[in-house]
Each structure stands twice: as structure tokens, then as C-alpha cells.
């Protein structure tokens, strides 16, 4: 089970609304490598993990991703306060606004709504952990791209924090992958050991 803590993992206090920036940052909420997909990926994969350490890594990183989803939601909320219709039209935010007003909705910047089709839960720890390593790198690239697009230090600061977390999670998943690989048959050099029909 989960318990909500009424605090952000890292502070988000944005002075200047910027709907054009919200339109790209929303991808880290509902896009292909966003925080919602990350949380759902790890929290659903964990049942197939073959040892307690890997069960813990998936549970705890999955949980941290939920707090990152909250930080992205907060960034979007603060970037879209007190907008005039002129700002909405001129920024290109109108295509989001027409369906969601300024509500926070999980969608990719390209306009594709959040979908579980962007991740897997294969029931096989080796396959899942290899996906998880790639997922952390892809999310890191998206944060790099957001940093290329965003000038406002109030936005860059929490985005830099989130980017750094992708790097730490990659490290922890690497250890989890090594642990599972060490549990495989010693003659299995190629890291396949179907977990279903053993």
C-alpha cells in the first residue's frame, strides 16, 4: 500500500507562467518515456522479480517515480496559471487548452494520450530489467532535450534534479540486472534462462 506525504521530493516554485514550455514538459507526465509510464512499468514488473533485492529496487524506484509525476504535475500547474486568451493562442497551447483547459492530463507533447503500449511487463526478469535500463536512459535524454528548450532557472532547477535521478536509477537497475544474471545457470553466457518453464 501507499501513504501520501504532503510535500514535494524537490521544490518547484515557478514565478513566470509559460504555456509553450508546459506544452513540451507534459511529455514527461504522459509521454513515451514519462514518469507515469516509468511508475507503472516498475510497479507491475516487480511481481516477476526472482529475489528480494530486485523486488525492493522495482518497488522503491516505482514509488519514487510517483513523486516525480507529482513534480511534473506541479511544474505544469504553475506554468499555466493566470493565462490570458491571447497568451494561450500565441503560445500554441490552444491545442491542449481546447480539450483540457489548464487541467493536468497525461499526454505526450505530440498529442498522443498516455498509453501502456509504450512499456512491457514480460514476466521475465532479464527482459524486464534490460527494458528498465533503456527506459532510464530515454527519460534522461528527454530531460536533456527539455533543458535545451527551457531558459527559466525556476524550471531548469527541478528538471536538473529529475534528470540526475534517471542516472541514479540506471545505476541501481544495473546492479539488479547483475544480481539476476548471477543467479542464472553458470553455463548460460548469453543471459537467457526462461523463468516460466524451468
Amino acid at each position: 500500500m501507499w501513504q501520501y506525504e504532503k510535500k514535494l521530493q524537490y521544490p518547484v516554485n515557478i514565478k513566470n507562467p509559460n504555456p509553450a514550455l508546459a506544452k513540451v514538459i507534459v511529455s514527461q507526465l504522459g509521454g513515451p518515456d514519462g514518469e507515469l509510464g516509468a511508475a507503472l512499468r516498475y510497479l507491475n514488473q516487480r511481481y516477476a522479480a526472482p529475489c528480494r533485492e530486485v523486488q525492493a529496487v522495482l518497488s522503491d524506484i516505482g514509488t519514487e517515480e510517483l513523486s516525480h509525476m507529482e513534480m511534473i504535475g506541479t511544474i505544469l500547474y504553475q506554468l499555466t496559471r493566470n493565462l490570458s486568451m491571447k497568451e494561450i493562442k500565441e503560445s500554441g497551447f490552444d491545442v491542449y487548452f481546447v480539450d483540457h483547459t489548464t487541467g493536468v492530463y497525461p499526454i505526450a507533447a505530440s498529442g498522443v494520450p498516455f498509453t501502456a503500449a509504450t512499456f512491457q511487463s514480460t514476466g521475465d526478469a532479464i527482459a524486464d530489467l534490460n527494458e528498465d535500463l533503456a527506459a532510464e536512459q530515454k527519460a534522461r535524454v528527454t530531460y536533456d532535450n527539455i533543458l535545451r528548450l527551457a531558459d527559466d532557472p525556476d524550471v531548469r532547477d527541478p528538471i536538473k534534479f529529475l534528470r540526475a535521478r534517471e542516472i541514479v536509477h540506471y545505476q541501481r537497475f544495473g546492479e539488479a540486472q547483475r544480481m539476476v544474471q548471477d543467479m542464472l545457470d553458470s553455463k548460460n553466457f548469453y543471459a537467457f534462462n526462461p523463468s516460466f518453464d524451468k
Binding site: K7, Q9, E53, A56, V57, R172, E175
Partner: peptide, 18 residues
């Protein structure tokens, strides 16, 4: 609180694999 909480999250994830 956020600083201490972050230290705990980092140590927690590290201890999961160590």
C-alpha cells in the same frame, strides 16, 4: 526535511542492492 528525505531515499535505494 527535503534534504534529509533525499538522503534517506538515496540510502534506501542503495541498501536495496547492498
Amino acid at each position: 526535511i527535503q534534504n534529509e528525505s533525499f538522503a534517506l531515499v538515496e540510502a534506501h535505494l542503495y541498501l536495496d542492492s547492498h
